[in-house]
Design a protein around this nucleic acid. Sequence first.
DNA 1: AACCCGATTTACT
DNA 2: GTAAATCGGGTTA
Length: 195
Amino acid sequence: MNAPLPTPFFARPAAEVAADLIGCTLTVGEAGGLIVETEAYDGTDPASHSVKGPTRRNASMFGPPAHAYVYRSYGMHWCLNLVCEPASAVLIRAIEPAFGIEAMEHRRGLSTRHLLCAGPGRLTQALGITGADDGRPLAEAGFAVMTAAGPVDVVADRRIGISQAVERPWRFLAAGSRFVSRPPTRDALPWRVPR
DNA sequence: AACCCGATTTACT
DNA sequence: GTAAATCGGGTTA
């Protein structure tokens, strides 16, 4: 059935991995769900933390693939990325909650279902991800991404919250999902359509 | 200063 | 229901 994604899956350009992750299942401890929104960042990318080379914060982006890069955003949220090729990673922006929902609701405080994991900060709060998870390898017990159950209709759009390289269509969404942080814009591109 | 954001309020279709 | 405005708040380089 759903096998864990192997390390070579991640050892590719982040934009490819980001698109292919849509529809896969993220598991953190007892909770998880279907990945419905991602963004790619790489070493040639002015919007990426890695563009100026390694620093203490972004060290994980230069480490092995299939590991977590977790950083603090705006002083109060954590953001979860999965490392791909050197200096690149995929930001996990939203999942459709599938299991461990009570645990996630408890960590988030009462929040409506479609907002439980809709956004990078909400998602890490729901899953209990913090800076302590930076550098953590996938496939460690209770931390995994599983293959998609079936083909998923994916669209590509502009990334959110950046001021550099805004035109790169490196945000990927499950078409029609109600669990994304923001719906696609008018100029979102069809990316991969199941046949 | 700038930042890969979220919760809340206020205002509109 | 979307859209804009506002504030909160740590860390980076």
